[in-house]
Write a protein that binds this DNA or RNA. Structure first.
Lengths: 141, 141
DNA sequence: ACCTGATACATAACATGCTTTTATAAGTGC
DNA sequence: GCACTTATAAAAGCATGTTATGTATCAGGT
């Protein structure tokens, strides 16, 4: 009997995620982009060009909000909007190299911040977290 | 071979936490309080009454912003401002019972939302996350 | 070819929350 | 009294979201 399966307490995990998020967020570069902006850029990097409405639905914001976000991203050079050859109505949003660079910089800064936190953590704890990481990624795909 | 110890990729963990947080956040009730407001309330609940400048520094916002936030929290009955007996300049902010109740409601909602996500996760993944939970809590104390 | 309705996006008007900046007032400690 | 600290206040601006409405394009039937 390989141990009573440890039940995962959702409330506890929720609190832990909230706390972690707060801590990690403060390790962000100054003048950082918004949550939605970052999430959208990451999605564009991961999945390639997407339509506005797709993005809005995926990010859980309204279509006008995504239109405005795309305009800001374009203004800041982080994304481009192009038209779809097969449908004149749609706007395809694509991350630019500057956008990729920004994401890379963010990752570097946060990695350093987290690395500092990890120095106070035991190797066992770090290994446990590393082992759970793929599962966490599957939890919020 | 018990596996080369998997190094924990800080960028991946940060991204996973951000995504999880986003998912949990979208399960929030409408008219939810701001990120900073929630984080501040949680801090007050966890650490007891704090002064304004402390809170501003801890939350990474400016002092005028924290003054405004405290006023909103007070207006909404979620926190109180009291004076410090030993220093007449100081304002101590304290969470009220209504504030605690709000936090509790938020946690309930999020926990339910998370529980729904967990139903789509394999038992193995859930066990991995459960095993890592104490480590995560130590990471963001 | 032409209407019709659906679809994709933009725009307008508004609310919140945060930032800076600047000024003010009040308490503390020497 | 003076310098410093703590907090408040108010103005101007930006970011981010909402709802409601407009506009352009497409797809299909006649």
């Amino acid at each position: 009997m390989p141990a009573a399966k440890t039940a995962l307490d959702p409330a506890r995990l929720t609190t832990a995620v909230e706390r972690l998020f707060s801590v990690l967020r403060h390790g962000n570069p100054p003048n950082d982009i918004s949550l939605t902006a970052a999430s959208t850029l990451r999605r564009l990097e991961r999945e390639g060009p997407r339509r506005l409405t797709d993005l809005a639905a995926a990010e859980g914001v309204t279509q006008p909000a995504m239109t405005q976000l795309a305009q800001r991203l374009e203004r800041d050079g982080l994304a481009e909007r192009t038209t779809d050859a097969t449908d004149g109505r749609v706007v395809l949003v694509r991350v630019t190299q500057a956008g990729r660079d920004l994401l890379a910089r963010r990752r570097t800064v946060r990695a350093e911040h987290l690395a500092a936190l990890l120095r106070d953590l035991s190797a066992e704890d770090e290994a446990l977290i590393a082992a759970a990481l793929p599962a966490l990624e599957r939890l919020a795909p």
